[in-house]
Design a binder for these strands. Structure first.
Length: 460
DNA sequence: GCATGATCATGC
DNA sequence: GCATGATCATGC
């Protein structure tokens, strides 16, 4: 197609030539007006426009070739990706890194090694540009560019996990459950929604149920890890479980195997095994015990952060009931009043929705013993919110949103009003407040998953 | 025993 | 200083 580039190194050199520059710096002045007009007209709506302009003006590909699918020169797939400044991490990605659409019918016949995903996306040319809300896309500056070979440049453990993720997604599609896919199902490679609009559905194998269109993507947290550690070469500030035990297995297996020896044991027995002495009074006692079992000394564990997994210690009563609900981040009233559960135009979701579809939990389950201070480790399990309950969560969200919009803070959804979720305070105390759309102040609150719901989810 | 509102403790 | 996770107090 284009004779100029024969090797990926030539492509990289070309990409590097635009570092610290923006498209408006490199677009020939006689064309700039036309392009500006195009951006003004389509900029917001045509997601691919930035990438298309890069192909045309950075790589001199003819206008009629403007289509992401066609950029595959020297076996390299071009990805332009927005980054934002971050106080401690210099840059974080604004979004996940989205690959090609998943063809639900075709993919069930594929194997990982020969998959269309790998064929197309194995070798990437990544161009990161600094995104700023107030800037025109023609003025975004390129900050760093890298070649990335998905099979060659990342660790064995990560490649294995990505493969497992791909296989998990394909297995779910094979079972005719494409409509139940969630980005939180997997660890590093996700099946993210590509909603043109909610009415858009795709056929899947062996069932008449329509599923939302989805694409493979590197999850945002994993991409941020890649940016920090692999692409910018920053030091780790997390502890890696994998490196400690030199494991080559999936994230799930490695973590669960760490808990295996302690299942059914009391905290005293566990402490004896790991040679650790400590009173049980501290509020973070159980978390410290968990960290000891995992062999880490802090709460920042690389494999959990990379996969957006929250470790939660839950404690059952002797009867097996769970008293405590599970909280999500405090919400901002003004944001909540204005966000949409699903915003198709901007391809965004409400924060609570995003949490449910992207966050995984590692529940470490203890149970109190009757007439004793002792606790027993019952199980450890990974869990993410099942898509079958999403519409109920959406209902709770909509009730909460309309309460906030109307200033009816006493009517926020209570735990008795849904089997899944509710709204409760979540501040330092009742004076810990945030501004509302009405201009008043209200105590901090957040969404919670009902204790009973979580109890069932963990099998009690 | 449970729903609800509230606060505490820790670490980033 | 604040977010997050963990827990408490009260009243029905």
């Amino acid at each position: 197609m284009n004779e100029e580039y024969r090797t990926k190194e030539e492509l990289l050199e070309r990409a590097k030539a635009v570092l610290e520059k923006s498209l408006s710096d490199i677009i020939p002045s006689e064309m700039l007006e036309v392009v500006r007009a195009e951006v003004t007209m389509y900029g917001g709506r045509r997601k691919g426009l930035f990438g298309e302009l890069v192909e045309q003006f950075v790589f001199d590909l003819a206008t009629n070739n403007r289509s992401e699918a066609d950029f595959n020169i020297a076996g390299v797939e071009l990805k332009t990706n927005p980054i934002k400044r971050h106080p401690t991490k210099t840059y974080v990605s604004k979004e996940r890194l989205v690959f090609s659409m998943i063809d639900y019918r075709a993919i069930v016949h594929e194997a990982w090694e020969t998959s269309s995903f790998l064929k197309k996306n194995r070798r990437l040319l990544l161009m990161f540009y600094l995104w700023l809300a107030e800037k025109n896309l023609l003025d975004y500056e390129f900050k760093f560019v890298r070649l990335l070979d998905l099979l060659g440049d990342i660790s064995k453990e990560d490649i294995l996990q990505i493969r497992k993720d791909w296989e998990f997604i394909v297995a779910k599609i094979k079972r005719g459950e494409a409509h139940l896919l969630s980005e939180a199902d997997t660890y590093y490679l996700g099946a993210c929604t590509k909603s043109s609009n909610s009415a858009t559905v795709r056929d899947q194998a062996d069932t008449d149920i329509k599923a939302k269109p989805r694409a493979f993507s590197l999850k945002q947290q994993y991409l941020n890890y890649l940016i920090q550690r692999e692409l910018l070469g920053k030091e780790a500030n997390t502890e890696s479980i994998f490196s400690k035990i030199r494991a080559v297995a999936g994230v799930e297996d490695v973590f669960l195997s760490k808990f295996g020896p302690f299942l059914g044991k009391t905290d005293d027995e566990i402490k004896r095994i790991i040679c650790w002495e400590r009173g049980s009074k501290a509020k973070n006692y159980k978390r410290l015990l968990v960290n000891k079992m995992l062999g880490v000394t802090s709460n920042r564990i690389e494999e959990l952060e990379k996969a957006n997994i929250t470790l939660r210690v839950v404690t059952l009563e002797p009867s097996g009931t769970l008293k405590e609900s599970v909280s999500f981040p405090t919400f901002d009233y003004e944001t909540l009043a204005n966000e949409k559960w699903e915003d198709e135009e901007n391809e965004t979701m409400a924060n609570f929705h995003l949490e449910l579809e992207t966050r995984k939990f590692l529940f470490v389950v203890f149970q109190k013993l009757k007439d004793s201070d002792a606790i027993v480790l019952r199980k450890a399990m990974f869990w993410n919110f099942p898509m079958k309950d999403l519409s109920e969560a959406e209902r709770v969200f909509e009730v909460a949103k309309s309460c906030v919009k109307d200033g009816r803070y006493g009517d926020l959804p209570k735990i008795s009003e849904s089997t899944v979720a509710h709204v409760r305070p979540h501040g330092k105390n009742s004076t810990d407040k945030l501004p509302t759309p009405q201009g008043t102040m209200e105590m901090k609150r957040c969404f919670w998953l009902n204790s009973k719901y979580v109890q069932k989810a963990i099998g009690y």
